Simulated assay, not measured.
Amino acid sequence: MKKTIVLALALSMALAVAGCAKTGEPAATAASEAVSTTAETAQEESTPAAAVEETTTVAETVTTDSADAAAGVMTYEEYMAADLDSQVVIETYVQAKQSWWEDKATVYSQDKDGAYFLYNMACSEEDYERLVPGTKIRVTGYKSEWSGEIELMDATFEFVEGDEFIADALDVTDMLGTDGLIDHQNQFVTFKGMTVEAAGQDADGNDVAYLYNWDGSGTEGDDLYFNVSYNGETYTFTVESYLCDKTTDVYKAVQSLEIGQTVDMEGFLYWYEGVNPHITSLTVVK
């Protein structure tokens, strides 16, 4: 029906051109444009609307030289001075990934001045694969505290083009038991020359070097808890199974520990009711 109307209109306009032949080219041009416009309108009306495709939201990438984008980014000192539950914006570098689940990621990150624990940060599975060690990101979220652990929650992030950074392990062995240790919370650190102590007892009442879960209620694959001492003080360290599962070297190394051994370790200076490092490597030195 729409095509018939178009043809009729075109014929009418052509007759109008013939009747106005003495007026010259402008009338013919107007008729031609009118026919073209009418035909295009009819074509648009008869064309089905395009289907809308669903897309997955991914983090944007920004450049480091964008002054507007960098506005409001805090230094580590400003971040630590910010009130709890206040909104913060930081730039940091991925050091390790703990877990991803239902578009939320938990990440250990650090810059040259300090470290940040990013808990349940909004993140697509695609972007999680891009969060490799050294990657720079800008994070916006809320500063929070849980049992002494300062963390960034309810966060979003974007990738930042530019340099990469992977932190060297800071030796904090001699800081154990001091007030200054917490100043390095969440940083990648090392402990040297610590002695393995009993972590608890098995079902037969024998001392054991590690436990599955903090109270021994778990099984292989759960977090590992073990005790180590230095200068007469004993500390509880953890192999976080989401970070280092039972297939990793550090998990197997802790399962092989014997009470009285001396060990060197590396990991992240996590905090839970006191220092509770998440260990990523362990070497028995004697």
Results as ranks from 00 to 15, higher is better:
Ala198Gln: 11
Val208Gln: 10
Gln201Val: 09
Leu211Lys: 14
Glu220Pro: 12
Asp222Val: 07
Asn206Ser: 10
Ala198Met: 11
Tyr212His: 14
Glu197Ala: 11
Thr219Ser: 15
Val208Gly: 05
Met194Asp: 05
Val196Pro: 00
Ala198Thr: 14
Asn206Leu: 09
Gly216Ala: 08
Gly193Gln: 09
Gln201Asp: 03
Ala199Glu: 03
Ser217Phe: 01
Trp214Cys: 03
Leu211Arg: 12
Met194Gly: 09
Ala199Ile: 14
Gly221Asn: 02
Asp202Gly: 13
Ala199Val: 11
Asp215Thr: 10
Asn206Met: 08
Ala203Ser: 15
Ala209Trp: 01
Val196Tyr: 01
Gly221Val: 05
Gly216Gln: 05
Gly221His: 04
Ala199Met: 11
Gln201Glu: 14
Asp202Arg: 07
Leu211Ile: 07
Gly216Ser: 11
Ala203Gln: 14
Gly205Trp: 04
Ser217Met: 05
Val208Asp: 01
Asn213Pro: 00
Asp215Val: 10
Gly200Gln: 12
Thr219Met: 10
Ala203Ile: 11
Gly205Tyr: 01
Gly221Arg: 07
Thr219Gln: 13
Asn213Cys: 10
Asn206His: 09
Gly218Glu: 03
Asp215Arg: 12
Trp214Ile: 12
Ala198Gly: 15
Met194Thr: 14
Glu197Cys: 13
Asn213Phe: 02
Trp214Ala: 15
Trp214Ser: 14
Val208Tyr: 02
Gly218Gln: 00
Asp222Phe: 04
Gly218Tyr: 02
Gly221Trp: 03
Trp214Gly: 13
Gln201Met: 05
Glu220Leu: 10
Val196Lys: 00
Tyr210His: 12
Asp207Glu: 15
Asn213Ala: 06
Thr219Tyr: 04
Gly218Val: 07
Gly200Val: 04
Gly193Pro: 06
Trp214Thr: 10
Gly216Phe: 02
Asn206Phe: 01
Gly200Leu: 09
Tyr212Pro: 06
Gln201Gly: 00
Thr195Leu: 12
Leu211Cys: 08
Asn206Gln: 13
Gln201Leu: 00
Asn213Ile: 08
Leu211Ser: 05
Glu220Gly: 11
Val196Asp: 01
Gly200Phe: 01
Ala203Thr: 12
Asp207Phe: 00
Glu220Tyr: 06
Glu197Met: 15
Asp222Asn: 14
Tyr212Val: 06
Thr195His: 08
Ala198His: 13
Asp204Asn: 14
Asp202Phe: 00
Val208His: 06
Thr195Ala: 12
Val208Asn: 03
Glu220Ser: 13
Met194Phe: 09
Gly200Glu: 02
Asp222Pro: 05
Asp202Ala: 10
Met194Trp: 06
Ala209Gln: 06
Asp215Ser: 14
Gly216Asp: 03
Gly205Lys: 01
Ala209Phe: 03
Gly221Phe: 02
Gln201Arg: 06
Asp207Val: 01
Tyr212Ser: 03
